[in-house]
Design a protein around this nucleic acid. Structure first.
Lengths: 205, 205
DNA sequence: GAAAAATACGAGCATTTGCTCGTGTTTGTC
DNA sequence: GACAAACACGAGCAAATGCTCGTATTTTTC
């Protein structure tokens, strides 16, 4: 089997250029209609060079998904502290939403991978991994906030919350910047409304 | 300009066979990866025949979307009566959800058109029209239930509710039949949680 | 500085796919 | 039954697209 070549600095840069370009093209036309030749061209590189680093189009998307997952993790680790779980629910939800929205605004390609429904089979793997990462975080926070909550209920709630988030994310990032806060508020209301029956902290009345 | 031929009975049947086949193929592989040749083959017809009735692939999707819109409208008109607005919120929401879910289960292609993110430009028209139809219905009911609600808030709430619905619909239809009720309940909880602050009828405590 | 490994090029292949067109058959009209 | 309109066929075109491969250049290793 062909083993991975030892990348040199130039190669590392190329790979970043290529994933950058892929993000832009995915964001513009969606994964399905994105062409590898267009990605190579945008990266200022020949098709052959692209395939020196990525065996196929899917690998490019996987690399992107990995990058996003890492960025998300970083954003969360920066934004999450366990003290959150004692905040009033709306504020806690807000703290969870913000970094996700920010990552999304900073990476236009994210949505194309995170919430597009029309991806080839292999790609469901990275996509699910991304969603799974988010769901996992939510479940963690939920567990910390409501220790008595049965695991099954907790995981279901986390999954639903993530899907609600994904659904409204599209609107939030595509709406003019001036209206953004309004929609974020709405997302917050939706999540709080859904979660409060089981996650609202007793010290609230 | 080429005028529409006067369809005869045989032609009408073919058109239905073709939209039926399109629904199946769209449902199986999504719109983007669906091939017109595959649709023709499934309909038991040659590619040339397909193009006798539909100028292109998009037209096929538009015809499908129109059919779904009609079916949805019928389902709603059967399920909606104004007495609903005096029911407790969870029951009202349930009455709105059921027919939509049923239409979805009966028409596997629906989701591909209703909540796929990766469609060509022209198709956003029928897709948006479909979503708009649903949003309009929700807004109507909301208006009837909470007459004092400002129109802007009402429309926003309707839009958000529709998006939440669309997001969870995918899970609901793709999950094994045994788990379906559980997820419908969850969707109900999400919608009720979101809507109750502004739509809950005062006669509730 | 020479051999090896990594990087780069870009014309073009193999395949797919939406769609056409020449031709033949069925249905409706008078 | 004759003439036209609608229906049907299916081989195959033109364009797009993921990807290859022979060749050439740069970087690393010794």
């Amino acid at each position: 089997m062909p083993e991975e070549p030892r990348r040199q600095a130039r190669g590392q840069r190329r790979m970043e250029q290529l994933t950058d370009a892929a993000a832009v093209v995915f964001a513009e036309v969606g994964y399905a209609k994105a062409t590898t030749n267009a990605i190579a061209k945008l990266a200022g590189v020949s098709p052959g060079t692209l395939y020196q680093f990525f065996p196929n189009k899917e690998a490019l998307a996987e690399a992107l998904a990995d990058r996003y997952r890492a960025e998300l993790k970083a954003a969360h680790e920066k934004a999450f502290d366990l003290s959150m779980v004692e905040l009033p629910l709306p504020e806690m939800v807000d703290r969870m939403i913000r970094p996700m929205v920010d990552v999304n605004l900073a990476n236009p390609g994210f949505k194309a991978l995170f919430s597009s429904g029309d991806l080839p089979d292999r790609l469901t793997a990275p996509t699910r991994a991304l969603q799974q990462a988010v769901t996992g975080r939510v479940a963690e926070v939920l567990a910390a906030r409501v220790p008595g909550l049965p695991a099954e209920q907790r995981d279901t709630a986390a999954a639903v919350a993530t899907q609600i988030f994904a659904a409204l994310l599209g609107t939030i990032v595509s709406v003019p910047a001036a209206d953004r806060e309004r929609w974020i508020t709405e997302l917050n209301r939706a999540l709080v409304g859904y979660l409060s029956p089981l996650a609202d902290v007793p010290t609230n009345g």
